[in-house]
Amino acid sequence: MKATLKGLFFVLFPLFLGVLSLSIGRFEVDFTVQVQILLSQFMDIEQTWTDMEEAAVIQLRLPRVILAILIGGGLSIAGAALQGMFANPLVSPDILGVSAGAGFGAALGILLFGHGFSTQIIALITGMLAIGITFLVGGFKKEMPIFMMVLAGVVTSALFQAFISLIKFVADPEEKLPSITYWLMGSLGTASYYDILIGAPFIIIGMVILLVLRWRINILSLSEEEAKSLGISVAKTRWLVIFAATIITASAVSIAGIIGWVGLIIPHIARMLVGNNNRFVLPVSISIGGSYLLIIDNLARTLTPAEIPLSILTAIVGAPFFAYLLMRTGGGWK
């Protein structure tokens, strides 16, 4: 019973926060008005508000809130799955090079085709390529030591960061460059229903795959032979997890740019709350990660008239928190 209540809380909290976020913004919309506008989408309510208020809530904030929850939750479950699978607390899509890889693909896509489906696909391919390189450098073994995996990820990230710089270098400094530079720092500033349409399916598919496999990830965290001896197809399951984490990350990156730290920090918070069993860590990561990015994005869009890039805020909040974790645990994660 207690567990059910807890589960309900984790489902409802981001939703509650999402509704609340609809009344926050540079443009003032009263909370009660906001609720009426929201309800009027489903039932007949006499319009007492301006068209602009309705546009702000429905056209601007709602897609943004949905994407913040999806992307925050997606990056977090991807991080939790990778950390769980590799039994490695330092792993995340950023650290394995997926973010930089997908970032390069997305930058290339934006340069060639603009934002859209093709960019999603290119980001996905380069994200996969990046994680492939990380494993190639690291030696492809599950028993790859932690430092080796992190180093391999650093090398891959550096490589793709260089490619990103190359794109910035050749991009038109007046028109395309400011756009790419800004986008890379992470923003949901121009989130639209179209972004949800092209990005959400990838993120949701990835989430579903990981949620389905969440208990198997416990087994994958054991040594390779131990996992095999429990009767699961280790290689297939592992690649499926990596694939799911990569499509989530690639899709998030091509919609909102590189948003660091979320995939690394949130799973740790989830484990503090529900223990190490990935059966619970993964769904709870979606809830906390979605709420976290939503709060961060609310700050990004309201603190100043100019949009603040998300990765600046996530790092300012994330880095000290991670430092605190390191100090508290001595890096042991027992």
Binding site: G25, R26, F27, E28, M52, A55, A56, Q59, L60, R61, P178, Y182, S187, G189, T190, R301, T304, P305, A306, E307
Partner: peptide
């Protein structure tokens, strides 16, 4: 409209535009 809010060139969101109107 950006007099007190923006220094140089900055990215803003649509809501800020509504706010300035």
């Amino acid at each position: 409209v950006a007099e007190g809010d923006i220094n140089g060139i900055k990215e803003v969101n649509m809501e800020q535009v509504y706010n300035w109107d």
